[in-house]
Protein backbone atom coordinates (compact mmCIF):
# COMPACT_ATOMS: atom_id res chain seq x y z
CA UNK A 1 0.00 0.00 0.00
CA UNK A 2 1.12 3.52 -0.74
CA UNK A 3 2.25 5.96 1.98
CA UNK A 4 -1.01 7.90 1.72
CA UNK A 5 -3.98 6.20 0.11
CA UNK A 6 -7.28 7.96 -0.49
CA UNK A 7 -10.14 5.69 -1.57
CA UNK A 8 -13.34 6.93 -3.11
CA UNK A 9 -13.52 10.14 -1.09
CA UNK A 10 -16.78 12.04 -1.17
CA UNK A 11 -17.43 15.35 0.58
CA UNK A 12 -20.70 17.27 0.57
CA UNK A 13 -21.70 20.74 1.64
CA UNK A 14 -25.32 20.14 2.54
CA UNK A 15 -26.91 18.70 -0.59
CA UNK A 16 -24.07 19.73 -2.85
CA UNK A 17 -21.54 16.99 -3.56
CA UNK A 18 -18.29 18.89 -3.84
CA UNK A 19 -16.04 15.84 -4.12
CA UNK A 20 -17.57 12.98 -6.05
CA UNK A 21 -15.50 9.91 -5.37
CA UNK A 22 -11.82 10.79 -5.60
CA UNK A 23 -9.05 8.21 -5.21
CA UNK A 24 -5.33 8.90 -5.28
CA UNK A 25 -2.06 7.78 -3.78
CA UNK A 26 1.12 9.35 -2.58
CA UNK A 27 4.23 7.17 -2.31
CA UNK A 28 6.93 7.74 0.25
CA UNK A 29 9.45 10.34 -0.90
CA UNK A 30 7.30 11.74 -3.69
CA UNK A 31 6.02 15.19 -4.45
CA UNK A 32 2.46 14.73 -5.69
CA UNK A 33 0.44 17.67 -6.97
CA UNK A 34 -3.30 18.09 -7.21
CA UNK A 35 -4.03 20.75 -9.78
CA UNK A 36 -7.26 22.19 -11.02
CA UNK A 37 -9.22 25.36 -11.51
CA UNK A 38 -10.90 27.41 -8.81
CA UNK A 39 -13.80 25.47 -7.34
CA UNK A 40 -12.53 22.08 -8.53
CA UNK A 41 -12.42 20.92 -4.91
CA UNK A 42 -8.71 21.01 -4.12
CA UNK A 43 -8.98 22.73 -0.75
CA UNK A 44 -12.07 20.68 0.14
CA UNK A 45 -9.95 17.54 -0.30
CA UNK A 46 -7.18 18.97 1.88
CA UNK A 47 -9.58 19.95 4.64
CA UNK A 48 -11.40 16.62 4.60
CA UNK A 49 -8.13 14.64 4.69
CA UNK A 50 -7.45 16.15 8.11
CA UNK A 51 -11.13 16.04 9.12
CA UNK A 52 -11.45 19.80 9.31
CA UNK A 53 -14.43 18.95 7.11
CA UNK A 54 -16.36 15.70 7.58
CA UNK A 55 -16.09 13.07 4.84
CA UNK A 56 -19.35 11.72 3.45
CA UNK A 57 -17.78 8.43 2.38
CA UNK A 58 -14.34 7.10 1.58
CA UNK A 59 -11.27 5.95 3.42
CA UNK A 60 -7.85 7.39 4.07
CA UNK A 61 -4.86 5.30 5.04
CA UNK A 62 -1.53 6.71 6.14
CA UNK A 63 1.46 4.45 6.61
CA UNK A 64 -0.89 1.44 6.73
CA UNK A 65 -3.09 2.99 9.43
CA UNK A 66 -6.74 3.91 8.89
CA UNK A 67 -6.92 7.65 9.59
CA UNK A 68 -10.34 8.23 8.01
CA UNK A 69 -11.97 9.42 11.20
CA UNK A 70 -9.04 10.69 13.28
CA UNK A 71 -9.53 14.27 14.53
CA UNK A 72 -6.95 16.76 13.18
CA UNK A 73 -4.90 17.03 16.37
CA UNK A 74 -4.22 13.28 16.38
CA UNK A 75 -2.69 13.39 12.90
CA UNK A 76 0.23 15.59 13.91
CA UNK A 77 1.89 13.00 16.19
CA UNK A 78 1.54 10.44 13.37
CA UNK A 79 3.64 12.69 11.14
CA UNK A 80 1.14 14.64 9.07
CA UNK A 81 1.32 18.43 8.98
CA UNK A 82 -0.76 20.75 6.88
CA UNK A 83 -0.02 24.27 5.73
CA UNK A 84 -3.57 25.44 5.16
CA UNK A 85 -4.81 27.67 2.39
CA UNK A 86 -4.33 31.32 3.24
CA UNK A 87 -1.43 30.36 5.56
CA UNK A 88 -3.51 30.80 8.73
CA UNK A 89 -0.57 31.83 10.89
CA UNK A 90 -1.46 33.18 14.32
CA UNK A 91 -1.43 36.86 13.46
CA UNK A 92 -1.59 38.16 17.01
CA UNK A 93 1.28 36.01 18.28
CA UNK A 94 4.95 36.56 17.59
CA UNK A 95 6.96 34.70 14.98
CA UNK A 96 8.72 32.74 17.74
CA UNK A 97 5.41 31.82 19.39
CA UNK A 98 4.07 30.58 16.07
CA UNK A 99 7.08 28.29 15.74
CA UNK A 100 6.66 27.03 19.30
CA UNK A 101 3.05 26.17 18.52
CA UNK A 102 4.23 24.27 15.47
CA UNK A 103 6.27 22.10 17.84
CA UNK A 104 3.32 21.71 20.24
CA UNK A 105 3.44 17.91 20.06
CA UNK A 106 7.25 17.70 20.40
CA UNK A 107 8.41 17.75 23.98
CA UNK A 108 12.15 17.45 23.39
CA UNK A 109 13.71 20.86 24.11
CA UNK A 110 17.05 20.18 22.45
CA UNK A 111 15.30 19.01 19.30
CA UNK A 112 13.17 22.16 19.37
CA UNK A 113 16.20 24.45 19.56
CA UNK A 114 17.89 22.55 16.77
CA UNK A 115 14.83 22.66 14.51
CA UNK A 116 14.14 26.31 15.14
CA UNK A 117 17.75 27.17 14.30
CA UNK A 118 17.42 25.22 11.10
CA UNK A 119 14.34 27.24 10.15
CA UNK A 120 16.16 30.48 11.00
CA UNK A 121 19.07 29.38 8.85
CA UNK A 122 16.77 28.65 5.96
CA UNK A 123 14.84 31.90 6.36
CA UNK A 124 17.05 34.48 8.10
CA UNK A 125 14.19 36.99 7.94
CA UNK A 126 12.26 34.90 10.47
CA UNK A 127 15.17 35.06 12.88
CA UNK A 128 15.37 38.81 12.45
CA UNK A 129 11.65 39.15 13.14
CA UNK A 130 11.18 36.45 15.75
CA UNK A 131 9.92 38.88 18.39
CA UNK A 132 7.61 40.63 15.95
CA UNK A 133 3.87 39.98 15.84
CA UNK A 134 3.29 37.64 12.89
CA UNK A 135 0.47 39.75 11.44
CA UNK A 136 3.01 42.42 10.52
CA UNK A 137 4.93 40.12 8.15
CA UNK A 138 4.48 40.39 4.39
CA UNK A 139 2.57 37.69 2.52
CA UNK A 140 5.71 35.89 1.42
CA UNK A 141 7.22 36.02 4.90
CA UNK A 142 3.97 34.68 6.33
CA UNK A 143 4.11 31.76 3.91
CA UNK A 144 7.69 31.03 5.02
CA UNK A 145 6.52 31.16 8.61
CA UNK A 146 3.54 28.90 7.90
CA UNK A 147 5.80 26.31 6.26
CA UNK A 148 8.42 26.54 8.98
CA UNK A 149 5.70 26.21 11.61
CA UNK A 150 4.45 23.02 9.96
CA UNK A 151 8.00 21.62 9.74
CA UNK A 152 8.52 22.18 13.48
CA UNK A 153 6.47 19.02 14.10
CA UNK A 154 8.93 16.92 12.01
CA UNK A 155 6.27 15.67 9.61
CA UNK A 156 6.74 12.65 7.37
CA UNK A 157 4.01 13.94 5.08
CA UNK A 158 3.52 17.64 4.43
CA UNK A 159 0.22 18.82 2.97
CA UNK A 160 0.57 22.16 1.23
CA UNK A 161 -2.58 24.00 0.23
CA UNK A 162 -2.00 26.76 -2.35
CA UNK A 163 1.43 27.83 -1.05
CA UNK A 164 1.93 30.34 -3.87
CA UNK A 165 -1.42 32.07 -3.50
CA UNK A 166 -1.14 35.85 -3.53
CA UNK A 167 2.66 35.90 -3.60
CA UNK A 168 4.96 37.88 -5.86
CA UNK A 169 6.84 35.83 -8.50
CA UNK A 170 10.06 36.18 -6.52
CA UNK A 171 8.52 34.62 -3.43
CA UNK A 172 6.80 31.93 -5.53
CA UNK A 173 10.24 30.79 -6.65
CA UNK A 174 11.59 30.85 -3.09
CA UNK A 175 8.65 28.80 -1.84
CA UNK A 176 8.92 26.21 -4.62
CA UNK A 177 12.67 25.92 -4.05
CA UNK A 178 11.93 25.28 -0.41
CA UNK A 179 9.37 22.59 -1.24
CA UNK A 180 11.98 20.79 -3.30
CA UNK A 181 14.55 21.08 -0.49
CA UNK A 182 12.10 19.77 2.09
CA UNK A 183 11.35 16.83 -0.18
CA UNK A 184 15.04 16.10 -0.79
CA UNK A 185 15.52 16.00 2.96
CA UNK A 186 13.04 13.14 3.17
CA UNK A 187 9.58 14.63 3.63
CA UNK A 188 6.84 13.41 1.35
CA UNK A 189 4.77 16.27 -0.09
CA UNK A 190 1.19 16.51 -1.27
CA UNK A 191 0.76 19.84 -2.99
CA UNK A 192 -2.45 21.54 -4.05
CA UNK A 193 -1.86 24.38 -6.49
CA UNK A 194 -3.57 26.66 -8.93
CA UNK A 195 -0.23 27.56 -10.40
CA UNK A 196 -0.18 24.39 -12.49
CA UNK A 197 3.03 25.15 -14.37
CA UNK A 198 5.06 25.58 -11.20
CA UNK A 199 3.42 22.63 -9.50
CA UNK A 200 3.96 20.26 -12.42
CA UNK A 201 7.57 21.35 -12.77
CA UNK A 202 8.48 20.07 -9.32
CA UNK A 203 5.96 17.21 -8.98
CA UNK A 204 6.90 13.57 -9.49
CA UNK A 205 3.28 12.82 -10.26
CA UNK A 206 0.11 14.85 -10.46
CA UNK A 207 -3.64 14.49 -10.58
CA UNK A 208 -5.87 16.90 -12.45
CA UNK A 209 -9.07 17.66 -10.63
CA UNK A 210 -12.19 18.83 -12.49
CA UNK A 211 -15.42 19.63 -10.65
CA UNK A 212 -14.95 17.11 -7.87
CA UNK A 213 -13.46 14.28 -9.93
CA UNK A 214 -10.03 13.24 -11.10
CA UNK A 215 -9.87 13.87 -14.83
CA UNK A 216 -6.28 12.91 -15.58
CA UNK A 217 -3.14 11.68 -13.94
CA UNK A 218 0.48 11.27 -14.94
CA UNK A 219 4.00 12.32 -14.14
CA UNK A 220 4.68 16.02 -13.86
CA UNK A 221 6.58 16.01 -17.15
CA UNK A 222 3.86 14.10 -19.00
CA UNK A 223 1.16 16.50 -17.92
CA UNK A 224 3.31 19.53 -18.70
CA UNK A 225 3.50 18.38 -22.32
CA UNK A 226 -0.13 17.23 -22.56
CA UNK A 227 -1.96 19.42 -25.09
CA UNK A 228 -5.32 19.58 -23.30
CA UNK A 229 -3.63 20.40 -20.00
CA UNK A 230 -1.54 23.09 -21.69
CA UNK A 231 -4.66 24.70 -23.10
CA UNK A 232 -6.76 24.46 -19.96
CA UNK A 233 -4.26 25.22 -17.21
CA UNK A 234 -1.02 26.54 -18.58
CA UNK A 235 -2.42 29.26 -20.79
CA UNK A 236 -0.54 28.17 -23.93
Amino acid sequence: MAFLTVNDLEVSYGLIRAIKGVSFEVNEGEIVALIGANGAGKTTIMHSLCNLLPKTTGQVFFNGQDITHLPPHKLVPLGIAQVPEGRRIFQELTVAENLRLGAYTRKDKAEYTQTVNKMFERFPILKERQKQVAGTLSGGEQQMLAMSRALMSHPKLLLLDEPSMGLSPLYVNTIFDMIRTINEEGTTVLLVEQNAKKALSIADRAYVLEIGKIAKTGTGAELLSDDSIRRAYLGD
Binding site: C50, L52, P71, P72, H73, L75, V76, P77, A81, Q82, P84, R88, I89, F90, Q91, E92, L93, E97, R100, L101, G102, Y104, T105, R149, A150, S153
Partner: peptide, 24 residues
Amino acid sequence: TRIGRAMLAVSEDRAAASLMGINT
Protein backbone atom coordinates in the same frame (compact mmCIF):
# COMPACT_ATOMS: atom_id res chain seq x y z
CA THR B 1 3.06 28.20 29.42
CA ARG B 2 2.59 25.77 26.58
CA ILE B 3 -1.09 25.27 27.40
CA GLY B 4 -1.58 29.04 27.69
CA ARG B 5 -0.08 29.52 24.25
CA ALA B 6 -2.41 26.82 22.95
CA MET B 7 -5.33 28.76 24.44
CA LEU B 8 -4.26 31.89 22.55
CA ALA B 9 -3.93 29.86 19.37
CA VAL B 10 -7.40 28.30 19.74
CA SER B 11 -8.83 31.72 20.45
CA GLU B 12 -7.40 33.14 17.25
CA ASP B 13 -7.98 30.26 14.82
CA ARG B 14 -9.46 27.00 16.05
CA ALA B 15 -8.88 25.04 12.85
CA ALA B 16 -5.26 26.14 12.50
CA ALA B 17 -4.70 25.32 16.18
CA SER B 18 -5.97 21.79 15.66
CA LEU B 19 -3.52 21.42 12.77
CA MET B 20 -0.73 22.15 15.27
CA GLY B 21 -1.82 19.06 17.20
CA ILE B 22 -3.76 21.02 19.82
CA ASN B 23 -6.81 19.19 21.15
CA THR B 24 -9.22 22.10 20.89
